[in-house]
Simulated scan of single mutants.
Amino acid sequence: MTDDYDVPADAETYECRYCGRPFAREEWLALHRGLDHPAQLDDDEVAAFRAAHEAEESALGNFRLRALGALVVIYFCLLMIYALV
């Protein structure tokens, strides 16, 4: 299966040396390598994958907390509006 990627000519990309897929960020390339090519990684690539994975998990955890907080605020605002109307 051949994948064609529409990448602007002036865009800086990081290309996977195993499959040739381009990425806009080096962290995304590290995550791709760790998920799609785990048996082919050297020690430095494994360390980069683990660091990128931990950073992604941390960012996802922060997003989940913010989303939960926003839902709680919206719920109580709607509850107060319903109580007053």
Rank of each mutant, 00 (worst) to 15 (best):
V7Q: 03
L29S: 04
C19K: 02
L79G: 04
A30M: 07
R50S: 04
A51T: 12
L84A: 14
C19T: 06
A39K: 07
I74Q: 14
V46Q: 10
V72A: 09
G34I: 10
A52T: 04
A67Y: 11
A48V: 04
Q40H: 06
E56H: 10
H53I: 00
E15A: 10
E57S: 01
A83L: 14
L31R: 11
Y82Q: 05
D6V: 13
E12H: 12
R64L: 05
D42A: 06
D6I: 14
L65S: 10
A24V: 09
G20N: 07
W28L: 12
D3G: 11
H37F: 07
R66T: 07
H37M: 07
E45T: 09
D36I: 07
D6R: 03
Y14N: 03
Y5E: 03
R17T: 04
E15M: 05
A51W: 00
A59G: 01
A83F: 13
R64C: 00
E27A: 15
T13V: 15
A55K: 13
R25W: 07
V7E: 05
Y14M: 02
I74D: 15
R66G: 06
S58N: 12
P8H: 05
V7N: 06
R21N: 04
G34Q: 09
G61Q: 15
L41W: 01
A67V: 04
V73A: 07
V72E: 12
H37R: 06
A47G: 06
A48W: 09
L65V: 02
I81N: 03
Y82D: 03
R25L: 14
D43F: 02
W28D: 15
G61N: 14
R21H: 13
F63R: 15
C16D: 02
A83I: 14
D6C: 09
L71G: 15
D42R: 04
R17Y: 09
H32P: 03
V7H: 02
